[in-house]
Design a protein around this nucleic acid. Sequence first.
DNA 1: GCAAATTAATTGCGTTTGCAAGCATATTGC
DNA 2: GCAATATGCTTGCAAACGCAATTAATTTGC
Lengths: 148, 148
Amino acid sequence: MTDLHTTNALRLLQAADDFRAGLSGEFAAVHGISVNEFLLMLHLERSAAKRLSRVDLAKRMHVSASTITRMAAPMEKIGLVDREIDARDARLVFVVTTDAGREKLFQALATFSKRAGDLFDDRWDDEEVEKFASMVRRLMAATGDMLA
Amino acid sequence: MTDLHTTNALRLLQAADDFRAGLSGEFAAVHGISVNEFLLMLHLERSAAKRLSRVDLAKRMHVSASTITRMAAPMEKIGLVDREIDARDARLVFVVTTDAGREKLFQALATFSKRAGDLFDDRWDDEEVEKFASMVRRLMAATGDMLA
DNA sequence: GCAAATTAATTGCGTTTGCAAGCATATTGC
DNA sequence: GCAATATGCTTGCAAACGCAATTAATTTGC
């Protein structure tokens, strides 16, 4: 319990929750999307083929496949994403961002970056920021085509 | 978007989500509680008075007060927590852990620590772990009586 | 080449959550 | 001391989510 690894893991969860909570309100108010909708589009943007199947998205976002289906439906309706069918495998239904979706993504990303700047504020020097980047990179479960 | 602060914030979210997802399954299977129920009891344990009102818990956990009400109800029913009334302010309903709840908390904490050990595995040396601790500490929104 | 097993997506159902309204108690302003 | 305001908690309602079952399509074993 006083083990430093445990403390670090707890702080990791808390810091991420704090940051996400702050983001959530601003995203809803300014951009009209949820953090999860933002992350969905970001995953698409960062994928090699700029498109992902529902199960791929589900794995990356740690949600069930049915959640992706139900998240994508309203996003299609308001024109943020579209669906694409694979010619070789008729089971696959890819999610792709529309131009409007990509624009919305970049707007939201600007808000995200502003918040990220506040998070790593003045008291962090460049070397520390770099060091943190390499550390937190090691913490992510590596999957090749994953988020940043 | 390629800004290092932004990358760090994204990785922070992803790493925390990855870790939480892994924890979630094991907590449900081994201990029969959710990560949020675990964190609720942990917040109580770490609070100065070993008890917190519903709104205090809500703020620390970034959920609504109604969620705390609805989380606490089944936890009271199975004997993990209990309620305490404040003599001076009849509006307050404190949540406190029972002995059984504290035991469950420590069991879950052992699982948590094991996972945390896997997260910061062999490739991290002591100095790095210490460095990470001080860094992620700065990232948490300071509230005095907060989580670790 | 075909049956069996696997994989992808969707839908029904129950659970969890947030928002807004409502109620009870405290605090403030005068 | 009392009305107005603020705070803490709970509940109704709707949105979001996971699990299990279903359907459709592909892959595997022989």
